Simulated scan of single mutants.
Amino acid sequence: MSRPVIVGLDGSPSSLAAAEWAACEAHLRRLPLKLLHALEDWTPSYGHATSIGATPSPQYWGERIPREVSQRLAERHPGLEITTEQVDGRPLPVLDAAAQEAEVLVLGSRGLGAVTGFLVGSVSQAVLAHAERPVVIVRPGTSQDSNDVSAPNGSQPPAGTYRPVVLGLDLSRPCDELLEYAFDAAAARRAPLRVVHGWNMPPAFTFDPALIAPEVRDGLAAGTATALGDALRPWRGKYPAVHVEEECSVGHAADHLVEASADASLMVVGRRIRRSAIGTHLGPVAHAVLHHSAAPVAVVPHP
């Protein structure tokens, strides 16, 4: 049985944006969609305002929101299998449990605009830090793409419908889970995959880059580009239809990725799985991209 795309739903604008994104994703990947609603303490912890216009009573949160959102998505995505589930419990444990059974878990982020970026709530951050399945954060006002077209159920979107999928790749950990997710996302969208790797000069030259000879600098750049190509070669073979653009840039990876997000349909970054019960569990690159990306962000855990 296929894992579903699961979206945390609370009626807030951010969760409604996440539900629409999740429906598009389920449609693209030919997977069922589950709308998940946690009944106890959901409102103060995860969402603060409903955009549907009803009094936020327990009965409203538990019945009306999932029903109305499900009906809306069914109209926009005919043929998509949609189910709803209500779970008694606090958002964090409910979402943590849902992440284990999801192909991808989709959560909303309160948007702050193109300059300020995302505001990732404490529940979303906690889920991101502990989930061992991919989690996508969606900001209100963003969609799969500005040219989003719902293809007939079971068919692929027209080529060129989606902007590139951007993958931030650390060559010290080019893990299969991260690469497979990014290539799958690009293949489903029939979109290019832009792979961005940020690198820095050796520490001896960071104080004064002018000290490094041009031929040495060029050799380091060529070696980094070769390493990136070697890491991607097996995946190009597995996904021959995906057009891959390789980009090696000197500087902080997060800066390059945030810049690339302006023309992306999806940002993909990795998160190393840590078993420690304390700590944020999010690296600096993932943290920066989550808060400043102009596109939805997929965080893929890996060993």
Rank of each mutant, 00 (worst) to 15 (best):
V120A: 03
I82C: 12
G121M: 06
E132L: 14
L73R: 01
V136R: 01
Q100D: 09
R72W: 07
Q71K: 13
H77G: 02
P58Q: 09
Q100H: 06
G111V: 01
W42M: 15
L95P: 02
L112S: 06
I52H: 07
A126D: 15
S57R: 05
G117H: 05
Y46T: 02
W42H: 08
A102V: 10
S124T: 09
P93F: 13
T55M: 11
E103T: 03
G62L: 01
A54D: 12
G89M: 09
A74P: 05
R64D: 10
V115W: 13
D96Y: 03
G121R: 04
Q125N: 13
R139P: 08
T55S: 11
L107M: 12
V138Y: 05
Y46R: 03
V123N: 05
V69P: 06
V135T: 01
L119A: 15
Q86S: 13
E103Q: 12
A74K: 08
V104T: 11
E103A: 14
R139I: 06
T84L: 07
R76D: 11
A129C: 09
E103S: 12
R67V: 07
V120L: 06
V135G: 00
P66T: 00
V115F: 09
V127N: 01
G47K: 00
I82N: 05
A98P: 10
W42T: 07
L73Y: 02
Q100R: 04
V104P: 09
H77I: 03
E101W: 02
R64P: 02
V120P: 06
R139C: 10
P44K: 06
S51G: 10
A98H: 02
V115L: 14
V127Q: 04
A126V: 13
L92F: 11
S70F: 04
P56L: 06
G53C: 02
P58G: 05
L95M: 03
T84P: 13
E63T: 08
Y60P: 03
E101Q: 15
E85L: 08
P58A: 07
L128D: 12
V87W: 00
H48F: 15
L128S: 12
V136D: 08
G47H: 01
A54F: 13
V123G: 07
P91M: 07
P56N: 05
V104L: 15
